[in-house]
């Protein structure tokens, strides 16, 4: 295989071209599969449902992680980089998630999902509504009833003291 030095051209939805090293591009399982099925001269891969802004972010991720693996970057550094990388607005974050799922980049999908999960954790229902611009449509009674049913937190501490 002449993978070294091989360049893959990724074309975004809005027709912007990105030149990416083979090793970086094939961090996407989708692209790796596509490139396996075509002749070696083919270097252009259209990514029809990812726009340039998001694709640039995704490539940035792949490039960093490709390099990090090559130079054996410490786990703490990678973690810190990931954290900074995920500091984007919600819309971008969701689009990255969709792109990662489409391009089949498991690690990025995982990172994105954990980031969203982290945003939800330790927040109240009202805070989550605000965060994701959700207007509740339950009546107060319905909500109170549901809260009652979900009330394990306090239940658990009571259970602890009662010997089963």
């Amino acid at each position: 295989m002449t993978e070294k030095g091989r360049i893959v051209k990724m074309v975004s939805q809005d027709q912007e071209e990105f030149e990416v090293e083979y090793g970086v591009a094939t961090m996407s399982t989708l692209i790796a599969n596509v490139l396996q099925d075509v002749s070696e001269e083919t270097t252009t891969v259209p990514i029809p449902n990812v726009n340039a802004q998001v694709l640039a972010k995704v490539i940035e991720y792949c490039r960093y992680h490709y390099e990090a693996k090559r130079i054996d970057q410490s786990e703490e550094d990678i973690e810190r980089w990931n954290k900074d990388f995920m500091k984007v607005d919600n819309k971008t974050l969701f689009n990255i998630l969709i792109a990662a799922s489409f391009l089949d980049i498991a690690d990025l999908l995982d990172l994105g999902c954990k980031t969203v999960a982290g945003m939800i954790k330790d927040k109240s229902v009202e805070q989550i509504r605000e965060l994701f611009c959700i207007e509740g449509d339950f009546t107060e009674e319905q909500e109170a009833k549901m809260r009652e049913e979900n009330n394990w937190g306090s239940e658990m501490s009571q259970e602890n003291n009662a010997a089963q």
């Binding site: 969203v116 999960a117 954790k121 989550i128 509740g136 909500e143 549901m146």
Partner: peptide, 14 residues
């Protein structure tokens, strides 16, 4: 990726 309590909280959104 969430714990059960957070999941139950999401159910309350709408």
């Amino acid at each position: 990726c969430l714990d059960a309590e957070s999941l139950a909280k999401l159910q309350l959104l709408d």
